[in-house]
Design a protein around this nucleic acid. Structure first.
Ligand SMILES: [Mn+2]
Ligand SMILES: [Mn+2]
Ligand SMILES: [Mn+2]
Ligand SMILES: [Mn+2]
Lengths: 220, 220
DNA sequence: TTAAAAATTTAGGTTAGTCTAAATATTGTT
DNA sequence: AACAATATTTAGACTAACCTAAATTTTTAA
């Protein structure tokens, strides 16, 4: 059995592996986890010992099959609990991440699949992230970052890459919920800010900074 | 914030305080928790330091107001999660205790009350134990142990004082679910075993050992 | 191609929670 | 009241997960 701490390391390594390919650096783990690099090195040795990562000194790490499976199982739990908290308990989407950080470590093996059934086998969490099925398979999204769209194009807001409470609350305030139809009207030359048309009737201007975290699906 | 370990000590001290009155002995905590007495002593010093227990060396411990409140909050969570697991996820009553042992330590303050609302403010858990309300108040049961009833009397099975899977499965097999109407017909002189009439039509004999764990409410 | 900068690991320490063995206090029994 | 039995605490050690400071390796860039 893995400790909470080990599970958190695996999750972090998984997420970092998704972004850049090639091995994950000690320092990047250190930065995400808020631990010192020396502490990370200690843990990497332990995870390698347990067969969860491939680790070559000074060369960074990657997850083994077993490590990846473990990480995905945790992410599955995290996202299912987030759905539960929003759909069943009525939490807002900006309130659930930290609670799910705790719940994702509950070990009981039967629990996950029963929760999945209870929730009706959801495919995405409240932030638009895909929920892996019980075999660990992700349904991968064809997301385009809003800033990569061309003026004149329309898409559906389908995910966010920044999960902080302050950002999610900002989106809600602007009426930018998942499922919103957004037309990119213009990108301002001066500061890169974006002029949007929301649901065909409301216009809104947002910063490039905010737009970088909005993940869109083309309509079709 | 208290650690998982501290919370488990508080819960154990609470339960032991309920049984016998007067201070709780180091050895009894040691026995329940499966730790050595020396380890218990270390923890008692720490809990006293934090103002959660009254501790006089060699004289045993009792919970302070703060300690009792903390313990009750954990028990509330434990029992609410047990209800959730049985009512919503379809677990059997003998499967939920260990899972609730994990879930009871989830810290998120809003979660408990939302769960309580979602479940419809249940007053008892799947084993018949009362669930304290959000002010920490228990609705105390007027339970009588089955072995204390007189032959000829009838009551409703309303709780169990032994929560092990093997015992709960045995009860289920015998058709002894919570809510069952039981008439005590006769106590055998030879071995103290009890002859019962269940739901007015089915007769059943159970050992004194088993009967000691069955908590009854008189009909009225 | 080499020296400086950056990344990573090693060495040595700390704290929480556990242990065993030994010391001490309390309780029970003649 | 005194001694034996029992309960409890103290002393000293261990592991997991962290830390700082120093050493080492890799990378960058003159
Ligand atoms: Mn999350
Ligand atoms: Mn999410
Ligand atoms: Mn229980
Ligand atoms: Mn229970």
């Amino acid at each position: 059995m893995n400790s909470f701490t080990e599970e958190n390391y695996l999750k972090t390594i998984f997420h970092l592996s998704e972004k850049a390919d090639g091995p994950v650096a000690t320092n990047s783990i250190s930065e995400v986890m808020g631990n010192k690099a020396a502490s990370v090195t200690d843990m990497l040795r332990k995870l390698a010992e347990k067969g969860l990562i491939n680790y070559v000194k000074y060369q960074g790490v990657s997850l083994t099959k077993k490590g990846r499976e473990t990480a995905i199982a945790i992410i599955r739990k995290h996202r299912l609990w987030e759905v539960f908290l929003v759909e069943k308990l009525g939490f807002k989407w900006d309130e659930v991440h930290d609670i799910a950080e705790e719940l994702e470590h509950i070990k009981a093996p039967e629990l996950v699949d029963r929760l999945d059934t209870f929730l009706g086998h959801p495919t995405h969490d409240p932030h638009g992230d895909p929920i892996p099925n019980s075999h660990g398979e992700f349904q991968h999204n064809e997301w385009i970052i809003l800033t990569k769209m061309n003026p004149g194009q329309t898409g559906i807001l389908s995910g966010v890459s920044e999960h902080s409470t302050v950002f999610l609350q900002y989106l809600e305030q602007q009426g930018l919920l998942l499922g919103t139809r957004i037309k990119l009207e213009e990108i301002m030359a001066f500061d890169g800010s974006l002029k949007l048309l929301i649901n065909q009737n409301q216009s809104l201007s947002i910063s490039r900074e905010a737009a970088k975290n909005l993940l869109m699906l083309h309509e079709n």
